[in-house]
């Protein structure tokens, strides 16, 4: 039984890289291009983990996470934030918006998988 991970990032190259790393580790990957699209996808089945970028058009990562956390159904889905920006303020802001953890870009597959396993089965 494989886990499903929703990846939300406006860069196709980034989505492709995540998909490659995650599929290799045995996860099923669902993709979205930005916050709005991510919410649409989430109207279907809830994934086991969400990985989202911060800087995206239409709806950014913070807005997306806040919206996800408002949904009862999704309140306990772990969300990992994928970003290059990393000040304590940004971390706190991510946390306030509902992030469970974070992954720093550029990521290596190992760190990615470790982070995922730290928040999900």
């Amino acid at each position: 039984m494989s886990k499903t991970i929703l990846t939300v990032d406006d860069s196709r190259a980034m989505r492709d890289m995540l998909k490659m790393a995650l599929s290799d580790a045995g996860y099923d990957v669902v993709q979205a291009e930005d916050g709005v699209h991510g919410l649409e996808v989430l109207e279907g089945e809830a994934p086991d983990v969400i990985i989202t970028d911060i800087n995206m058009p239409r709806m950014d990562g913070f807005g997306f996470m806040e919206a996800v956390r408002e949904d009862q159904r999704l309140r306990s889905v772990p969300i990992l934030v994928l970003t290059t920006e990393f000040s304590p303020e940004k971390k706190q802001r991510a946390r306030d918006a509902g992030a469970t953890g974070w992954i720093v870009k550029p990521f290596d597959s190992e760190k990615l998988i470790t982070a995922i396993r730290r928040v999900a089965a």
């Binding site: 039984m1 979205a32 279907g44 086991d48």
Partner: peptide, 9 residues
């Protein structure tokens, strides 16, 4: 942890 079939939107 039921297997959730990934259904691309």
């Amino acid at each position: 942890a039921p297997a959730k079939v990934a259904e691309p939107s």
